[in-house]
Amino acid sequence: MEVIVKNIKGQDTSKKVTLNDGVFGVEPNDHAIYLDVKQYLAAQRQGTAKSKERSEMSGSTRKLGRQKGGGGARRGDINSPVLVGGARVFGPKPRNYDFKLNKKVKQLARRSALSYKVKEDALIVVEDFTFDAPKTKSFIELLNNLQIADKKALVVVAGADKNVYLSSRNLPKAKVAAAADLNTYGVLDAAVMVVTESAVAKIEEVLAK
């Protein structure tokens, strides 16, 4: 599939980029997308929730009432989970929520997400660009020229570009990502993707294997 390359002024150029059908034109696999997004969100969880169990509570270990004949539930010391202010049974403990996902499944998920963007006509290819200095005004001008200032945008560049990243940092609806760091969640979360020419080649290099 051929896509016309735009410049940073939003104008069509004479150049065209041929998108690899094995990356941008596959039949989307929704289950692979679900698994990859689930893993991404699980990895973001802190997993630091913690409550005290019976052995960790401070308090007397004296048995408060007799074992039988009281008319209520049997209980031991003041730390018993059946009492108000007592310990919690099977409470949360610090843990890692991340889980393993096969590399081929992750790649299929990313190809599926990119294919959805192409089908929705939500992928724009622009010439390679950079800014002389970090300037939010320059980044806003780029979005305005591409007529996507009111949309949630993901700008993908070939490699880490500090000036472009810092220029977008104050904009809540805009994100900048390097092609190597592209993930399924980031692609789907954006309403429109802006990809530089060299970033297209980098994405195809990683996902066409």
Score class of each variant (00 low, 15 high):
Lys104Ser: 12
Asn79Trp: 03
Asn163Ile: 02
Asn170Thr: 00
Gly159Arg: 06
Ala199Met: 04
Phe129Asn: 09
Ala49Ser: 14
Phe90His: 11
Leu19Ser: 04
Asn79Thr: 08
Lys202Ile: 00
Thr184Glu: 03
Arg54Leu: 06
Glu27Lys: 09
Asp98Tyr: 11
Val187Asp: 01
Thr18Lys: 14
Lys63Phe: 01
Asn79Ile: 08
Gln39Arg: 15
Lys52Ala: 07
Ser115His: 07
Leu83Ile: 12
Ala149Cys: 10
Thr61Glu: 04
Met1Ile: 10
Met1Val: 11
Leu146Gln: 08
Phe131Trp: 09
Ile124Thr: 13
Ala32Ile: 08
Lys104Ile: 09
Tyr97Leu: 08
Ala49Cys: 05
Lys100Met: 00
Ile124Phe: 01
Ala190Ile: 09
Asp30Tyr: 13
Lys9Ala: 06
Gln44Arg: 15
Leu154Gly: 08
Asp36Leu: 00
Phe131Ile: 10
Gly59Lys: 06
Leu123His: 04
Leu143Thr: 03
Val84Gln: 14
Ser112Pro: 01
Gly91Thr: 07
Lys151Ser: 05
Thr130Lys: 06
Gln67Lys: 15
Thr61Lys: 15
Lys68Thr: 02
Lys119Met: 02
Arg95Asp: 09
Lys152Phe: 07
Glu2Tyr: 12
Val156His: 06
Gly22Ala: 12
Gly59Cys: 03
Arg88Asn: 10
Ala190Arg: 03
